[in-house]
Design a protein around this nucleic acid. Structure first.
Lengths: 197, 197
DNA sequence: CTTGACACGTGACGC
DNA sequence: TGCGTCACGTGTCAA
């Protein structure tokens, strides 16, 4: 087997007599490693029809992109879900765009797990319901917050729901002639949660 | 860069010279395609230090596994965080769903005192909240109705609110693989209430 | 007979 | 100097 001379004219690349075999062996090992990785790659990429290297690479590329896109979607989705429940909450209290709040609005939401807060009032009674993530200290925090609003607590109930959720229901009464719009109440509770979390 | 005359003294496989060039060219194209895919692959795999083929393949493999694992986690998480919720308030119209309901709609409603029913589901847990008029026997009625839906009650709470209102919160669990869309649950409870009141 | 894919040996380049 | 990596041309096998 005689190869035609590549025109480099650099005929003087010393070839080691014994080490030439090393070279061959090393190259063989390298190829072996590559082939192994190709097999490994093709084994974790689902649904490939053609098993040739180009197709494996191509399908792997598509697959990676697909996975990345899916992860992106899932992460957005999880965030959206909490946002939706927040929106539900905001329906009750959204006029928050008032002047008493922080003006640094817009990007103010790092809302990892904002709770859903609902409040209603009947005569002197106020009912507060909070659907939130299970956290140590939430109940105490909420109760003290409620009391700080000059509301005397009549009853409270905490129900675990699912693995990581709490449903807190509180009934309180307003003192004397002091009264508070429920929307203000929800706003205050929400601010307390923002500080707390 | 054309090789002139490789004289074929090889006894085994002799190729026509023009066709040999085709072979070379084709192989070149194939290699080019492979290299291109390698580059493409390495461009979408983040944070790879070594750019040699074996490392690209190896890191791509690790990366794919990492993505798969992450997707698995995210999907589990979203499943946990998925909370279906339906609220039925008087005057609010249910998405009507199927035909199993009474068609005698229209002005048949003396619904002045229909309760507000809300249900949400997370995994096996179901939370039911009913805001209704204070009546003797409501709780028992509601609980038996819930149990008749193959739900085992985990916790229940009844809070008086105002003079004539009750806020009932129930947490129950669905049996085994039996599951029910929350909207069906709300519909059933609503029907029970309609019969009861 | 053509086409495409593969592994091999080999020269070259960079550290 | 050697060691690792690469691209190339080539022979071979299968569709």
């Amino acid at each position: 087997m005689i190869k035609t001379r590549p025109f480099s004219s650099m005929a003087t690349t010393t070839r080691s007599p014994s080490h030439a075999q090393d070279h061959i062996l090393a190259e063989r090992k390298r190829r072996e490693k590559l082939s192994q990785r190709f097999i490994a790659l093709s084994s974790i990429v689902p649904g490939l029809k053609k098993m040739d290297k180009a197709s494996v690479l191509g399908d792997a590329i598509k697959y990676v992109k697909h996975l990345q896109e899916k992860i992106k979607q899932l992460e957005e989705q999880t965030k959206k879900r909490t946002v939706e429940s927040v929106v539900l909450v905001k329906r009750y209290h959204l006029p928050a765009a008032d002047d008493d709040d922080d003006h640094s609005n817009s990007s103010s939401n790092d809302d990892a797990e904002l709770p859903e807060i609902e409040a209603r009032a009947s005569e002197r009674d106020v009912m507060i319901r909070i659907h939130c993530e299970k956290q140590p200290g939430v109940l105490a925090k909420v109760l003290s917050e409620v009391e700080s609003l000059r509301l005397s607590i009549v009853n409270s109930s905490v129900l675990p729901f699912g693995n990581s959720t709490l449903d807190i229901t509180i009934v309180a009464q307003m003192d004397g002639e002091f009264s508070m719009k429920v929307i203000e109440l929800v706003k205050n509770l929400r601010l307390a949660f923002l500080k707390f979390m």
